[in-house]
C-alpha cells in the first residue's frame, strides 16, 4: 500500500513547480532564461500532442507537416488579409486536421501500421516542406518570411514583451496536459490501448479501429497545428526547415521518446533536456554543428527505441516502482 504521504506528495510538488514557473518572470531579470523556458513550453506542448498518438503505437515521423500547415496558413492569412492569428490559427489548425484526416484515412484503411506508418508520415512531412518551398511567391521559399510587425497588438497575437509569450505558452502546455488526463479517463483511451496492443483482438470485441485512430490523429494534428502558430508568432519568422521537414519532424518524437511518451510528464521532461542541451551546444560551440542534428536525431531515435523504449523518465519511474514494490514485499 502507498502511504498517505505518497498520495499527497504529487499534487503538492505540482503546485510548487507551477507556482515557481508562474512567479519566475517576476523575479528573474534574465530575458534570456525566459526565452529558453518559453521555447521549452512551446516544444513541450508540441511533443505532448505528438505523444497523444505515439503512446498508442501510432508513431508519426511527420508532425512537421501539421506544424508547418498550421503556421503558414495562419501567417499568410495575417500578412495578406490582415486576419488576426487568433482566428487564423483555427483555420490553420483545421488545415492540419484536414491533412491528418486524408493521410490517416488512407493509411488506416489500407492497414498501414507501425514502421510503415512512420515512413509514410516522414514522407508527408517532407512533402509539406517541399510544397512550402515550391510556393516561393507567397511563402518566400526556403528563405522563409517575416511576420508583419504591428508592435504591441494583443488582438493580433503580437506583444511588446516576450513575457506574454511565456505565459501564453505555459497555458497551452497546461491545456495539452489537461487534455492528456481527459483522454486517459475516456473510453477512447481504452480502445486505443487495446488497438495499440492487438488490432485483431480489439476489433473482435467491437472496437472500431479506423474511427479511433482517426480521432486521436486529428486531435494530435490540431494541437500541433496550433503549436506551429505559437512558435511562429513568438519567433515572428517562418522557415520551412524549422516548421516542417525532416529535422523538426524527427526532433518532436525524439524529445517525447527521450523523456518517455507513456507518461504525461515524459515529453515535457525530454523537451526540457533537449532544448537546454541544444542551447548549451550552441553557446559553447557556436554554429559548428548545424546540420549534424538530423544525423544525431536519427541515430539517437533508433538507439532509444531499441534500448530505452520507455524513455529516461519512464525508465526511472519503473525502476523506482520496482524498488518500492520489492521493499514492500520484504517488510
Amino acid at each position: 500500500m502507498r502511504s498517505p504521504l505518497n498520495i499527497k506528495r504529487g499534487p503538492i510538488l505540482l503546485t510548487v513547480i507551477l507556482g515557481c514557473l508562474i512567479l519566475f518572470p517576476v523575479f528573474s531579470p534574465s530575458p534570456y532564461l525566459i526565452h529558453i523556458i518559453t521555447l521549452i513550453f512551446i516544444w513541450s506542448y508540441v511533443s505532448t500532442a505528438w505523444s497523444y498518438m505515439g503512446r498508442f503505437g501510432l508513431v508519426s515521423l511527420g508532425h512537421g507537416a501539421f506544424l508547418g500547415t498550421g503556421a503558414y496558413i495562419t501567417a499568410l492569412l495575417f500578412n495578406f488579409f490582415n486576419l488576426s492569428p487568433w482566428i487564423g490559427m483555427l483555420i490553420g489548425a483545421s488545415g492540419a486536421v484536414f491533412l491528418a484526416a486524408v493521410l490517416g484515412y488512407a493509411c488506416f484503411r489500407s492497414g498501414i501500421i507501425g514502421d510503415y506508418f512512420a515512413l509514410v508520415t516522414l514522407a508527408v512531412g517532407e512533402l509539406v516542406a517541399l510544397s512550402i518551398i515550391a510556393m516561393r511567391e507567397i511563402t518566400g521559399g526556403s528563405l522563409g518570411f517575416t511576420l508583419r510587425s504591428l508592435g504591441n497588438s494583443p488582438l493580433y497575437f503580437q506583444f511588446g514583451s516576450k513575457v506574454y509569450f511565456y505565459y501564453i505558452s505555459l497555458l497551452f502546455l497546461l491545456f495539452a496536459l489537461y487534455l492528456w488526463k481527459r483522454i486517459d479517463k475516456s473510453k477512447m483511451q481504452k480502445a486505443l490501448k487495446a488497438i495499440g496492443e492487438d488490432e485483431v483482438a480489439a476489433s473482435s470485441v467491437g472496437i472500431n479501429i479506423i474511427r479511433h485512430k482517426m480521432a486521436i490523429f486529428i486531435i494530435s494534428a490540431f494541437l500541433t497545428g496550433i503549436g506551429g502558430v505559437l512558435y511562429a508568432q513568438y519567433i515572428t519568422y517562418l522557415n520551412p526547415h524549422t516548421l516542417s521537414g525532416v529535422t523538426v519532424s524527427l526532433a518532436i518524437p525524439f524529445k517525447a521518446i527521450l523523456g518517455g511518451m507513456f507518461n504525461i510528464w515524459g515529453p515535457a521532461i525530454g523537451t526540457a533536456m533537449i532544448v537546454s542541451l541544444e542551447e548549451y551546444i550552441r553557446v559553447s560551440y557556436g554554429t559548428k554543428f548545424v546540420g549534424v542534428s538530423e544525423v544525431v536525431y536519427g541515430i539517437a531515435l533508433i538507439t532509444l527505441i531499441i534500448f530505452l523504449p520507455k524513455g529516461l523518465y519512464g525508465t526511472v519511474l519503473e525502476i523506482f516502482h520496482k524498488r518500492q514494490r520489492s521493499a514492500e514485499t520484504i517488510t
Binding site: K187, A191, D198, A202, V205
Partner: peptide, 29 residues
Amino acid sequence: VARTFQIPRPLKDLTVVENVMLGALFGDS
C-alpha cells in the same frame, strides 16, 4: 457474432477485468 481465439489473445497491459470490460463497453453497438 462473438468469437474466442484458439491461441488466447488477452490484452496484456490491461487487467483481466478491463479485458472483459472492453467487450461490454464496445461490443454492443
